[in-house]
Design a protein around this nucleic acid. Structure first.
Lengths: 231, 231, 231, 231
DNA sequence: TATGAATGAGGCTTCATTCAT
DNA sequence: GATGAATGAAGCCTCATTCAT
């Protein structure tokens, strides 16, 4: 954020960058507690202790700051969490990745909530979110494809499965950590969620299924992709 | 006073019910296309071709109609889809259930979108949604528990797994069918999603996993949550 | 109220009179608790358990019922309190009159409050109040004039004094009994007000004043009004 | 940030104060002619020739401006009238005080009317009025007490008498000057009211009463306090 | 750069009143 | 007589955005 202003930063520019940062942080805090729609430009400038008009020097409007806030958070967090090394213990790697993901989620609960809200109101925010999400899904499906080529996992549609598993992580994290479902507040344990998700992910990718009553097991793998009409 | 009421009443009551329905339908349509926040009472009454004030004869405010719209949709749909018989082919039952769920989702895409948005803005709507969702999760975890008692499935925390699997279905349906991820619009096939979800659900419940690099398979069940002491 | 319908009252008319009475009583109760402006026709019909439209069968609008309510109360109360016999003990008579007045005030505190409010909003209500008040003042000034002719009281402008004494009674009763000034709620005693008012009235009419520093005592009577120059 | 503030400020502050004053004056004028309830924020901004929203920059709502208008009037007037010196001619002092009071009343007739109306609709306005009034009453009763200690006036309950005399002045002024009772418009003379009120006040405080037909004269003084039940 | 006063569109809600049954 | 659904005018308040200093 606010990098690349590589000129021999004179006072003016520093000042500007500082003000911008001030507003960005204030906006983050306000969005976190009030959500998207209930946040007003006035609340942001109040918190930043700048004049109302100053806001429009740095951002086009609320939608704009919001995108910047999200981008900033994502960059910061990704810088920290990166992607876990997945040496030769896939299960442990999965668990670590999920744990990272949930930690970030917990840290910014109100912000994700605001993101969910904002994407329903602004195409640009929706796009931003879709782009972020696609990153995640592509990374996952890339890994699956590589493993399939290496023969280390069963056959399935890597994109759809990545999509579904990502959805499971996102949404169960959101409902569990932000909305507090399904168990009551005090009896909640993020680690239990990590374990459950890791287990399900692992089963999805590496598991085998018994020949079952549906008698469809044979067709299962093929069934996961719409491109195998025989399914 | 207030006697003799018995004959003239009925035309009136019908009329009132019809007006209410008119507004409800109009509201449904407007929410569907505009989302929650962008919907105004004026837009609803315009569409219903009633006076603005008429709205307040039947609903307290926007939040109120919205809840009624959702309830009405859920009732209608549940009446239709009920719950699928799960005779002796669990896999087929799962698939049918998921297909039903997705069909409803597709039919009311904009409404779910509005629901997502509304729950971020109104505690009452959030509660409504949580209640609806809890129903689903409880039904699932109830089935799991029954099967575990019958010994037909492996040991796991039924609540957490139900929570996670429901999240997977909801959110991948939402992103896929409403937001159009991950594949481009025209190359999208709900059946592929049904198949993938059914597969992953089935694996989650009935699947076995190979002894893997993580070496944690033995501890898996216990790891899924402190709330399944038997595990 | 609702008298003089001397026809052999058939069911219809009784019915109508009863409904009217119902609405009138309901209106009285609602005005009493909510004041003038905050009272709505809907609240009145709710309380009377009649249809909203029925109201307009008997009254033109809110202003109209309000006037009827006030008239009805005044008639009832006057019927009860009449005017006290003022035989040969003027001081006792005054006290009794004042006590009656305050009693009525206390009984209908909210209604007087509403009357005050209503007269600021509706010329017709203002007129009603002025008419009621003029009655009182005229009665008082009539008595004063008679006494002056009989030589039993000092000389003063009977109209102005009656006006001022009436104002004192009205307004100190209102502030004391309805608004609760000047003493705190629990330490309030209507009898103390009665005594004070009676004392001041008596002094106003019968009292003599010492020759004072202002040296204006001799001119006092003349000073009280240009209309009684000889007085 | 927010440094350097010191020079550009002043023109702005002046401007703001001017706008506020503009609105305050406009509000005063509108309340004066329309009363409390019939005044709308729109009417005020129309008169002030500002945008509707500008109003809310300076006042919270109608109730708020109204209180400011009243406070402003009271401050202005009090600055002018102060309290009359009451050297050694108590009667003249009383008259001067009353004359001042009535003059203010006349100048702002519509505003007092609005105040009366507003206090029935808003607890805050009622409180404002009670506070203003209590000031007056306390000042009066303070004077009475001092005089009683000095032995220059008879014995009576200073609070109750001050309360009653204030009520007489307020309410007869209101009915006479604002509502135009009891005499017709053209035949009205504030000086007559001043003289009558001064006379009655003087008699109330300094007057003696003859032993009268009620035979209660002996108990009179004690009678003015509610704590002497024998009265 | 920064300020903050001013703007005005836009949404919400209430209620008196009418009128067909 | 009684009903109660429908109407729509009227007021309130918020806030994003502009602009002169």
């Amino acid at each position: 954020m606010t990098v690349d202003q590589s000129e021999p930063a004179n006072g003016r520019q520093d000042q500007a960058a500082a003000t911008r940062r001030l507003l960005l942080d204030a906006a983050g805090a306000v969005f976190e507690t009030r959500g998207y729609r209930a946040t007003t430009v006035g609340a942001i400038t109040d918190r930043a202790k700048t004049a109302h008009g100053t806001f429009y020097l740095y951002f086009r409007n609320k939608e704009d700051v919001f995108c910047r806030v999200i981008e900033s958070v994502v960059l910061d967090e990704v810088a920290v969490s990166a992607f876990v090394p997945h040496d030769d213990a896939p299960r442990a790697a999965m668990e670590a990745g999920i744990r990272n993901f949930l930690t970030v989620f917990e840290r910014h609960g109100g912000l994700w909530r605001a993101l969910l809200e904002g994407m329903m109101q602004s195409p640009r925010i929706q796009q931003l979110w879709l782009d972020l999400r696609r990153d995640l899904v592509l990374r996952m499906s890339g890994i699956f494809e590589a493993q399939q080529r290496a023969g280390s996992v069963r056959s399935f549609d890597p994109t759809m499965v990545a999509h579904a598993l990502a959805a499971m992580a996102e949404w169960s994290a959101f409902t569990y950590l932000v909305l507090g479902e399904p168990s009551p507040e005090d009896d909640r344990d993020p680690e239990a969620l990590v374990a459950t998700l890791a287990d399900l992910w692992f089963r999805a990718v590496y598991g085998t299924v018994p020949d079952d009553g549906g008698g469809r097991d044979a067709g299962l793998d093929g069934a996961t992709g719409q491109r195998s009409p025989s399914a």
